[in-house]
Amino acid sequence: MFLGEFSCLAAFYILLCRDRHRAEPSLAPAQPFNPLLFLPPALCDMTGTSIMYVALNMTSASSFQMLRGAVIIFTGLLSVAFLGRKLVPSQWLGILVTMAGLVVVGLADMLGTRDETHKLSEVITGDLLIIMAQVIVAIQMVLEEKFIYKHDVHPLRAVGTEGFFGFVILSLLLIPMYYIPAGSFGGSPRQVLEDTLDAFCQIGRQPLIALALAGNISSIAFFNFAGISVTKEISATTRMVLDSLRTVVIWAVSLAVGWETFHGLEILGFLILLTGAALYNGLHQPLLARLPWRRPPAGALGSEAERENLLGGERAPINGDS
C-alpha cells in the first residue's frame, strides 16, 4: 500500500521536471513546508489500515467497506474540535443517520453468519475493529486537510510523502517482526509475527500473488491521488459519491463470485449510510434549491445596479464624478 503511495512522489517529480521545460509552466511554485508534517498522517494511515486488514479477515468485504462509512461521524466531530468548524443541522442529522446505518449493517452482518464462514464472535470483533479504525482514519483526514490547504501542497507530493514515511517505517518494522513469536496468529511456518523471507518465496513461486500485489500497488497509487485531487479541485461531495460507487462494485463482485451471501438488510443499511453521507456533505442542497418555493421572485433584488450595490460593487459615477 505504501509502495503504491510512494510511487506518487516519483510521478510528482517527473511531472515537475516536464513542467519546468515548458515555455509557460502550469504548476504554481510550491510553498516551502516541512515534510515531517506528513509523518503523523502516515502513522495514522499505517495504524488504521493495519487494524482494518486484521478486521477484514473476520468479516465480509461488503460489510468492511460499508462500515468504513463511520469515518463521517468521527471526521465531523474532530473537525469541530480541532479545525474550529461549525456543523450545520443537516450535518448533525447526517451523523445520526450514519449511526443508524451502521447499526443496520452490523445487524445484517451478524444475521449473515449462518454460512459458518466466520464465527459470530469474529464478526462482532471485526466490525468493532473497523469502526475503531475509523477514529484513526478521521484523525488522518483532519491532519491532511489542515496541511494541504495551509501549505498548498500538490496532491501527488502529499500522497508520495506519506507513502515514503510509511514505506520506510514498515520496512524497518519487518526486521523485529521476523523474530517476534506470534503462535498461530502469525500464520507462517515459523509462527512469527511476519516471515518476510517466506513471503518473498511465495511471491516467487506463485506469479498470481505477484500480479495481485502489482495491481494493488497501482490501484492504491491512482486511488489516493484521485481522492485528494477531487477533494482539492472539486469538492468532498464528489469524492463521497465516487467512494459510494466503489462500495457497490465491491459488494456486487463479492456476490458474483460467491464470496458472500445476499442479505436484504445490507441494501437497507447501505442506503441509510449513503443518505447520511449525502446529508453530511450537503448533497441535498442543490436539490432543495431547485424547488419552486425556495427560489426568490424575479424582481426581489431590484435592478442590476441595486444588486451590485448589495454585493459591494463599484459605485456608479454621479454628478460628473470620474
Rank of each mutant, 00 (worst) to 15 (best):
Gly4Lys: 08
Gly4Ala: 05
Gly4Arg: 09
Gly4Ile: 06
Glu5Thr: 07
Ser7Leu: 08
Ser7Pro: 01
Leu9Arg: 08
Tyr13Val: 09
Leu16Thr: 13
His21Ala: 13
Ala23Gln: 10
Glu24Ile: 14
Leu27Phe: 13
Ala28Ile: 12
Pro29Ala: 07
Pro29Thr: 05
Gln31His: 14
Phe33Cys: 09
Asn34Ser: 04
Pro35Ser: 07
Phe38Asn: 01
Pro41Val: 04
Pro41Thr: 07
Ala42Arg: 02
Leu43Thr: 05
Met46His: 01
Thr47Tyr: 09
Thr47Gln: 13
Thr49Asp: 06
Ile51Gly: 05
Met52Phe: 14
Ala55Val: 08
Ala61Thr: 08
Phe64Arg: 12
Gln65Asp: 07
Met66Glu: 10
Val71Tyr: 08
Phe74Glu: 04
Phe74Thr: 06
Phe74Ser: 06
Gly76Tyr: 05
Ala81Trp: 11
Ala81Tyr: 09
Phe82Pro: 03
Phe82Asp: 02
Ser90Gly: 04
Trp92Lys: 06
Trp92Asp: 01
Ile95Thr: 03
Val97Ala: 06
Met99Trp: 01
Met99Asn: 08
Val103Tyr: 02
Val103Ser: 10
Gly106Asp: 07
Leu107Ala: 14
Leu107Ser: 14
Asp109Asn: 03
Met110Asn: 10
Thr113Leu: 00
Asp115Asn: 14
Leu120Ala: 14
Gly126Ala: 10
Gly126Tyr: 02
Gly126Arg: 06
Asp127Arg: 11
Leu128Thr: 10
Leu129Arg: 13
Ile130Gln: 12
Met132Gly: 15
Ala133Thr: 05
Val135Ile: 15
Val135Pro: 04
Ala138Gln: 02
Gln140Lys: 11
Met141Leu: 13
Leu143Lys: 03
Glu145Phe: 09
Lys150Arg: 15
Lys150Ala: 13
Asp152Lys: 15
Pro155Gly: 04
Arg157Leu: 11
Arg157Pro: 03
Val159Cys: 07
Gly160Gln: 01
Gly160Cys: 03
Thr161Arg: 02
Glu162His: 02
Gly166Val: 00
Leu170Glu: 07
Leu174Asn: 12
Pro176Val: 09
Met177Tyr: 12
Tyr178Glu: 04
Ala182Trp: 14
Gly183Gln: 05
Phe185Lys: 11
Phe185Tyr: 13
Gly187Cys: 02
Pro189Val: 00
Glu194Trp: 15
Ala199Cys: 07
Ala199Met: 11
Cys201Val: 14
Ile203Met: 10
Pro207Ser: 05
Ile209Val: 03
Ile209Glu: 03
Leu213Pro: 05
Ala221Pro: 02
Phe222Glu: 06
Phe223Cys: 09
Phe225Glu: 00
Ala226Thr: 05
Gly227Met: 12
Ser229Ala: 10
Val230Gly: 01
Val230Trp: 01
Thr231Asp: 11
Thr231Met: 14
Thr231Pro: 00
Thr238Asn: 12
Arg246Met: 12
Val253Gln: 02
Ser254Trp: 02
Ser254Phe: 02
Leu255Arg: 01
Gly258Pro: 03
His263Ile: 06
Ile272Ala: 04
Thr275Gln: 12
Gly276Leu: 00
Ala278His: 10
Tyr280Glu: 00
Asn281Lys: 14
Leu288Met: 09
Ala289Phe: 03
Arg290Lys: 15
Leu291Glu: 06
Pro292Tyr: 13
Trp293Ala: 01
Arg295Trp: 01
Pro297His: 10
Gly299Asn: 15
Arg307Ala: 05
Glu308Leu: 14
Leu310Ser: 00
Arg315Val: 11
Ala316Lys: 13
Pro317Ser: 08
Ser322Met: 13
